[in-house]
Nucleic acid binder design. Structure first.
Lengths: 160, 160
DNA sequence: GCTATAATAGTCAAAGAAGGTCAAAAGAAG
DNA sequence: CTTCTTTTGACCTTCTTTGACTATTATAGC
């Protein structure tokens, strides 16, 4: 029962395999899946956003393309700061989940830890108005993120 | 005569048979039983709750589904129930930390995971009146505890 | 060099496709 | 009759798909 969007996401990820980036034709891909071209944009927006660790570049006109670039690992200290900035004082569940998935893909947290993080920010935990949930989620998530990076730091020391 | 809810419960359990989890369409099932879709939620809430040893996951929108996951391992499940009972609807930070430390001592979570849990329930994460904090902490903690037990289980699925 | 045209890609709003929530009505049980 | 459980329905939120309209770029003809 895989949804179109899920299939397209899979297809793209298989295309990328270990490459840091790939280029594709939006219209071709759409045709391959028999869908509207804008469907591709939807998939890119919901599964290959910056929060997911990707950057999209593209060009229109003849010979146009869409390039999907996997973001490089930055220094961890900077990365934490970037993430905290992104979280700010309010964040919705999808964005938080995207960030967590990204941490997992970068092997910065184990699978179990990722699931724990998701459990901590899940909306169903909070019986509150939506906007209040976002604010609270940001607060909890911040704390957890900081801990993730502490864990990583310590692991480093232990390695030595 | 058997209540509708009982029939639906039976039906779902037969569907599951030996599987650790199944996926179903809420609307389809409701139609099959000629009842309101929300009836399905009622059955899930009253017969497939965490204390019954199940976890419900779902997704809305096109291709949406309801997934029912059976938690294995009776011994651990009972322990989870005990913990959830202890957490109740409100819990202070020290008590939560004590529980987390206990989980760590029992080797049910790694040290990193324990630290993550503590970060999630830390009082400074919650900018609210004290009593409200305890209530929210309980909600978040509950979610995380359930996740801990899922992590422990075998036959884990791979979607993060 | 310009300009028109074709070839791309992007945006946004609306429709469609699920599932969720909550409170009130209806039924059972005692 | 009262209380607890079940059932329903109106309304809400989330996710996906499409299509009309817009924007950009390359290139073929002047």
């Amino acid at each position: 029962m895989a949804q179109l969007s899920d299939s397209i996401e899979q297809f793209i990820k298989e295309l990328m395999s270990d490459d840091a980036h790939i280029e594709l034709r939006r219209n071709e891909l759409a045709q391959h899946f028999g869908c509207a071209p804008s469907q591709i944009n939807y998939v890119l927006a919901t599964r290959f956003s910056v929060d997911h660790g990707y950057i999209i570049e593209s060009r229109r006109g003849g010979g146009g393309y869409v390039r999907i670039v996997r973001m490089q690992n930055r220094g961890e200290k900077n990365f934490l700061e970037t993430l905290l900035e992104r979280v700010g004082t309010s964040i919705d569940e999808d964005t938080a989940n995207a960030i967590i998935s990204n941490l997992y893909e970068r092997k910065m947290v184990t699978r179990n830890e990722a699931l724990l993080l998701k459990a901590g920010v899940a909306r169903n935990a909070l019986a509150l108005p939506l906007t209040a949930k976002d604010v609270l989620r940001a607060a909890v998530f911040r704390n957890m993120l900081i801990q993730v990076f502490r864990n990583i730091e310590e692991g480093k020391r232990d390695d030595v």
